[in-house]
Design a protein around this nucleic acid. Structure first.
Lengths: 172, 172
DNA sequence: AAAGATTGTTGCTGACGACAACAATTGTTC
DNA sequence: GAACAATTGTTGTCGTCAGCAACAATCTTT
């Protein structure tokens, strides 16, 4: 069986939002808001997918100035809160492929935000730490991320956001 | 700025779930459940991402026998509920790139579930319809999808699921 | 010491979104 | 009605991402 993945980042469409047709008169297939979604509306997966699309776009837009994606942010946050973690541990915790994490860390290391230090207790693994600059930067990232969360609260409502987090808390 | 996308499908990991280490004694970096997630837990995006991961995996697993992904299911559902729709209309409605929809329809057409019919009113566009077989198959898909929804309800609770759908209803 | 498992790494495949370019067709504008 | 602009479906490119397999170095178990 073939299947695909819920990725973490996304490009921001340029012509998102308003779109105009050649003419002014809408044709049958055009008024998309009237298109029946049938059972699809009752599917949690569909609702969640659309919501995630929105939420990631807003995150990326809000953190665009510092060029940090949701995935990068999650990696930095975990390392910042748990210095010395191995790559495997981070990958497992965040549900990222360890092969994928290699590239993520390469990028973050190039930007001097993270450093890999060979563990002396287990010389196979790397102890991950934030650099001094990484620590400072992460503080700023968190401020921007908090701003993004406020956008979410504005979008779905403060109480709804908290309710949502409560409902999904089981997925850590 | 670079960003990425929230995709629709995912492969099911083989060794998901239980994993054993070389030894029996847990080492510091190993007990992943104790790893601090810091502010990450308060982020809707992270919770939603993890939830979507779970939900798509379950959908794919539940519909594995018929080899239908969430995206394919959404396309079939919309066409089934709105026969004659153009590709643009479907793409817009589901938030799929029209270039991407071309391949999706190619696949569904190969499997004799969907047919493209040139519209006479607008000879640029294709009117999309389910085949007879597609109509029959979709009925079965819907049964399996309903089973998947029951899994969701079991996982997060019946009331929580409904609450979730209510909260996210604005994202259509 | 030998065998098995784990860690980080590289490379491969397939799926996906964004984008650009194109032919055919339709609508607008002069 | 002719020239121009826009839309539709299509193809192809690019970058991101998940899963998988293979590998060397290293650790654990036997």
């Amino acid at each position: 069986m073939s299947n695909r993945a819920t990725q973490a980042t996304l490009k921001i469409p340029k012509n998102s939002g308003a779109k105009r047709r050649a003419g002014g008169k809408p044709r049958p297939t055009d008024n998309s808001s009237a298109i029946e979604l049938d059972g699809l509306l009752g599917h949690a997966g569909y609702a969640v997918r659309r919501f995630q699309l929105w939420i990631f776009q807003d995150f990326i837009r809000t953190l665009a100035a510092v060029d940090i994606t949701p995935t990068q942010y999650s990696v930095l946050t975990v390392i910042g809160a748990n210095p010395g973690l191995s790559q495997m541990a981070v990958a497992q915790r965040l549900g990222i492929e360890r092969a994928r994490l290699v590239h993520l860390l390469d990028s973050l290391e190039d930007r001097k935000l993270v450093k890999r230090i060979r563990s002396r207790t287990d010389r196979r693994s790397h102890a991950l730490h934030l650099t001094a600059q990484g620590t400072v930067s992460l503080r700023q990232f968190k401020l921007l991320a908090a701003e993004h969360e406020r956008h979410v609260a504005e979008k779905i409502g403060k109480e709804n956001r908290e309710q949502l987090l409560r409902i999904l808390s089981g997925f850590t």
